[in-house]
Each structure stands twice: as structure tokens, then as C-alpha cells.
Design a protein around this nucleic acid. Structure first.
Length: 350
DNA sequence: GAAACATGGCCAT
DNA sequence: TGGCCCTGTTTCT
């Protein structure tokens, strides 16, 4: 269950694992029959845009990237999709917690059976696509999309996507696109943030957390927000998602706000993330301000966090910290937003 | 076992 | 807005 940062990590992991190499492809589940034609291709590269993943495959390593011979495997994990890696020690290293198996997507998982030969791993019957190389393999299960596209098809997907905070934006064009899209719309900011045409890569966690950090009510219409508020949100998103892509974890709380949990019984069902097993990581029950914290007190003011349906998904917010007031001049926040300089996610690793 | 639930998105009304 | 598709895990009967 990934948001954009996970997909970017996956692209890096797949490229590291198979980039420039010939791969075997198969569809144990049988629901991706194109795997047979792709078998024996060279994986030229892996790219993430928002939550979309593209794997470029060609008959040979020296085929130019823009050649019509290049096939684009387009993968979207949806709610349930995940990749499971298995291989020699050091395979998919950047993400390995312990060989030979780990899962990415909703989490990474290390199995202690070190003697297992990855080549003999029988795929689960639900594996849509298996990619195998010389040193290891990757199994894809449960994607909402796994299809072969040509260059035009790939472009059609990209055309449906707004700016991705995880892609370079040297001239500020992406930020401007985001700000304009928000301020042009009478739709609520909570719905806009989930619209991949407005910003690509945000999911339900980043939405709720970003709005808390901005001290903005999810139900305020986009057009009521000032340009400054939108620019601050974009910059905060870039920082939060960059941290997420680097660590594999969504952490939005500042260290000073984490210990309220000591006095609270956390819901038994938590939100799993990559690296939950890592004792140096911020524990999941301390990682969020509002996500899945409905009925619990706000970390800042103690008011009970609320949840409601917004655009088909559950949104979480603190009705006090995120209260806004309508003034003649437009909407204003009742509380100042998090000072962005302090919000540097790098400073959040306790 | 069944049912509920989950970090999504598409398509038909 | 509602229904439906993907799968795995937890919680309820």
C-alpha cells in the first residue's frame, strides 16, 4: 500500500537489481501473458512518476531509449500491490533487511531462513509478474495495473499526472503548476491533494499529515487559499516525501511532539511501514500527527482527532489546530503553520 | 470461516 | 457518488 515515495524506492531497487541486464520474465498467475514475449529482454531502466512505475525493456542493451522496439511495462500497485525481492546476499541491497527475502510495498520483510536458494523459490500463485536476473528475482502481486505500453501509451499516462514532488524542479515550474491548480478550484483542499492531476504521489497519509502541518482544515476550498499557503505546502511535501523516499518511512512528527503516546493506549491495529523492525526508526505509533488517530487526543492541543469521509477516503484532522476562519480578506488559519525550517525531516530522526 | 479493513483508481451513473 | 477490481492481515463469529 504505497504512496509515491515507495514507488520511487522501488524504481531504484529494480534498476539496481536488473538495470542493463537480461532478465527472465514470467506470469505464474497467468494474468500477464505478455510476460512471455518479454522474456529474455534487457531491462534498460526503471522510472517512477507519482505512484506509477515504468520498466523499459528492449531486445538488446544498446537499443536507444526512444526506439519503437522499447516496451514499457507500466505498473501501478493500487491499494494491495507489492514487490517481493529474493536473491543472493547483497541483492536489492539498499532495501535488504535480511536476505534472502524481503517484501516492499506495504513493508519489507526479512525471513531468517538463510539457507534458502532463491532460484528454487516457488512463486505464490498470485504472482502477476516475476522478473528474474542472475543474482535474484522480484515478484509482483496484486497490482491494479500491469500492462505493456509503447511510448505513446506511456506519455498518455504521464499526461494524466500533475507534478511529482519527488522529481527535480529547478525552475519552480512544478510548484507553480500545483499552486495554480489548487487556487483555480472550488473543490476542497482535502480532495485536491488526493487528485493525481493536481499533485502526483500523495496518498491518504501524506494528505492528512500535510494538512495538519499546514494547520489547514481539509474542507476549505482550494480557491480560498493564499498563494503563500500553497507554496508552503508544496515545499513541505517535497521535504516530507524526500525523507520518505530516503528512509522508506513516512514520518511527519517533530521529536518534541512524539511522547504524548506514553500516556495513551494505541489502537492495536497500526499502519505498517518499511523498517518497522528497525529499532532506530521512529516507531509507527509516533510517526503521525493525525492519520489513524481518530478518537485519540491531538499531540499539540489534546483535542480529540476527528475522521470523516472526503472524496471517498477517510480524512483525519484536529478540529482545533486546523481550524480556519473566514475573514473579509479570505480564509486565515487560527494557528500558525509548522515553521518549515524546523520541519526538515532529516531533523526528525531521533 | 467470514468479514472488515487498508497508504488507489477506474468507470458507470 | 457508488460499485468494482487488486490481495493480505486482523478481528469477529
Amino acid at each position: 500500500m504505497p504512496e509515491g515515495h515507495t514507488v520511487h524506492r522501488l524504481a531504484a531497487a529494480l534498476e539496481q537489481a536488473f538495470g542493463g541486464r537480461r532478465v527472465r520474465t514470467s506470469s505464474p498467475q497467468g494474468r500477464f501473458p505478455e510476460a512471455e514475449q518479454l522474456d529474455g529482454s534487457v531491462l534498460l531502466g526503471a522510472e517512477a512518476v507519482g505512484k506509477h512505475l515504468f520498466l523499459a525493456l528492449a531486445p538488446a542493451a544498446d537499443v536507444p531509449a526512444d526506439s519503437p522496439a522499447v516496451r514499457q511495462v507500466h505498473v501501478h500497485l493500487g491499494l494491495y500491490g507489492s514487490w517481493t525481492f529474493a536473491g543472493e546476499p547483497g541483492f536489492a541491497d539498499a532495501h535488504a533487511i535480511g536476505a534472502p527475502r524481503l517484501r516492499m510495498g506495504e513493508r519489507e520483510e526479512a525471513h531468517g531462513d538463510g539457507g534458502l536458494d532463491w532460484r528454487r523459490l516457488v512463486p505464490r500463485p498470485t504472482v502477476r509478474l516475476r522478473i528474474a536476473g542472475e543474482h535474484g528475482l522480484a515478484d509482483l502481486t496484486g497490482p491494479t495495473a500491469c500492462e505493456v505500453l509503447d511510448a505513446q501509451g506511456r506519455q498518455a499516462v504521464l499526461d494524466r499526472l500533475g507534478p511529482d514532488p519527488l522529481r527535480e524542479d529547478p525552475d519552480g515550474r512544478a510548484r507553480r503548476r500545483f499552486v495554480d491548480a489548487v487556487r483555480r478550484s472550488r473543490t476542497t483542499i482535502g480532495a485536491l491533494l488526493m487528485n493525481q492531476q493536481v499533485v502526483a504521489g500523495i496518498g491518504n497519509i501524506y494528505r492528512a499529515e500535510l494538512l495538519f502541518r499546514a494547520r489547514l482544515d481539509p474542507f476549505v476550498p482550494g480557491r480560498e487559499l493564499s498563494a503563500g499557503m500553497c507554496e508552503e505546502m508544496w515545499e513541505d511535501l517535497v521535504a516530507l516525501m524526500t525523507y520518505g523516499a530516503r528512509t522508506g518511512r513516512i514520518v511527519t512528527t517533530q521529536p518534541a511532539h512524539r511522547d504524548i503516546e506514553a500516556r495513551i493506549v494505541e489502537r492495536s491495529r497500526g499502519t505498517r511501514q518499511n523498517g518497522d523492525e528497525d529499532p532506530s526508526a521512529v516507531p509507527r505509533e509516533k510517526s503521525f500527527y493525525v492519520y489513524h488517530r481518530q478518537t485519540l487526543p491531538c499531540r499539540l492541543c489534546g483535542t480529540t482527532v476527528r475522521s470523516a469521509d472526503l472524496a471517498g477516503r477517510t480524512v483525519f484532522w484536529c478540529p482545533r489546530c486546523q481550524r480556519v476562519r473566514r475573514r473579509r480578506a479570505g480564509w486565515t488559519r487560527e494557528h500558525p503553520a509548522t515553521p518549515w525550517a524546523l520541519a526538515d525531516p532529516a531533523a526528525q530522526v531521533a
